[in-house]
Deep mutational scan, measured.
Amino acid sequence: MLEGKVKWFNSEKGFGFIEVEGQDDVFVHFSAIQGEGFKTLEEGQAVSFEIVEGNRGPQAANVTKEA
Rank of each mutant, 00 (worst) to 15 (best):
N55D: 15
L41H: 00
W8Y: 10
E3V: 13
A46L: 14
F27I: 04
G54W: 04
G44N: 14
P58V: 11
G14F: 02
F17W: 08
E12I: 15
Q23K: 13
L2E: 09
V63C: 05
R56M: 08
V20E: 03
Q45R: 06
K13Y: 09
V20T: 11
N10T: 06
A32M: 07
K13R: 15
V20K: 06
S48I: 13
E43G: 14
K13Q: 09
D25H: 04
E53C: 12
G35F: 03
A67R: 11
S48K: 14
K39I: 06
N62L: 08
P58N: 09
K7A: 10
K39S: 08
F49A: 00
V26P: 01
L41F: 04
G35P: 04
Q23L: 10
S11D: 15
W8D: 04
G22A: 09
M1V: 10
A67E: 08
G16H: 02
K13M: 09
L41I: 09
G4V: 00
A67H: 10
I18A: 01
E42N: 14
E43I: 12
N10R: 07
I51P: 05
Q59K: 15
G57R: 07
K5G: 02
E43N: 15
V20Y: 09
E50F: 09
D25M: 03
Q23W: 07
G37V: 05
G37I: 04
V6T: 05
E53G: 08
A60Y: 01
E3C: 11
R56V: 08
F9N: 01
N55I: 10
E19A: 14
F15D: 03
E3R: 13
L41R: 00
F17G: 03
G22M: 06
G14R: 05
I33T: 03
I33C: 06
F27E: 06
V47L: 04
G4F: 00
E66S: 15
S48D: 07
E66G: 13
G54I: 04
I51L: 14
A46R: 14
N10Y: 04
E50R: 12
L2D: 04
V28L: 05
E36H: 12
F38R: 11
Q23M: 12
D25V: 02
F15N: 03
E12W: 15
G14M: 03
F9P: 01
A60M: 01
I18C: 00
N10F: 03
L2A: 10
A60I: 01
F9Y: 08
E36A: 09
E53V: 14
V52N: 09
F38Y: 09
F17E: 05
G37A: 08
Q59D: 03
K65N: 08
K7P: 00
E21N: 15
A46N: 11
E21D: 10
A32G: 08
V28W: 00
V47W: 00
V63P: 00
K65A: 09
E53Y: 14
G44L: 02
V63R: 01
Q45A: 11
L41G: 02
G16W: 00
F15E: 07
F9G: 01
I33A: 03
I18N: 02
A67W: 08
Q34A: 13
S31Q: 05
P58Y: 11
K39W: 04
F17M: 08
G16L: 01
E53F: 12
F27C: 04
G35H: 10
G35M: 10
E50M: 12
G57Q: 05
K65R: 13
E12D: 14
E43R: 15
K7F: 01
V52R: 11
R56Y: 06
E42M: 14
M1S: 07
E50L: 08
F38I: 08
G14S: 03
G57C: 05
G57W: 05
S11V: 11
G14Y: 00
Q34T: 09
G44E: 08
Q45K: 06
E66Y: 11
F9K: 03
K65H: 08
F38E: 13
A46S: 14
S48Y: 11
G4M: 02
V28A: 04
F49K: 03
N55K: 15
F17L: 07
S31R: 07
F30M: 09
T64K: 11
E21I: 09
G35A: 13
G57M: 05
E21Q: 15
D25I: 01
G16D: 01
I51A: 06
G22L: 04
K13C: 06
G44T: 03
Q23V: 08
K65I: 12
V6L: 03
F30C: 10
K13G: 06
I33L: 09
Q23R: 13
I51W: 06
V26W: 02
N10A: 09
H29L: 01
N10E: 06
K5W: 07
S48C: 13
A32I: 00
A32R: 06
K65M: 11
A60K: 00
Q34D: 09
E50C: 10
Q59V: 14
K39Q: 08
F17V: 07
V6D: 01
F27H: 04
F17T: 06
V6Y: 00
F30G: 10
K7L: 06
G22C: 06
E42D: 11
F30H: 10
S48L: 12
Q23Y: 07
F9E: 00
Q45I: 05
K13A: 08
E42Y: 15
E66V: 15
A60F: 00
F49Y: 04
E21L: 09
K5E: 06
T64N: 11
W8Q: 06
V6Q: 01
G54E: 07
G22E: 10
F49L: 10
E53W: 11
K7G: 04
F9I: 04
G16Q: 02
P58T: 09
R56H: 08
V63L: 10
A60P: 01
V26M: 06
G4Y: 00
I33R: 02
K7I: 08
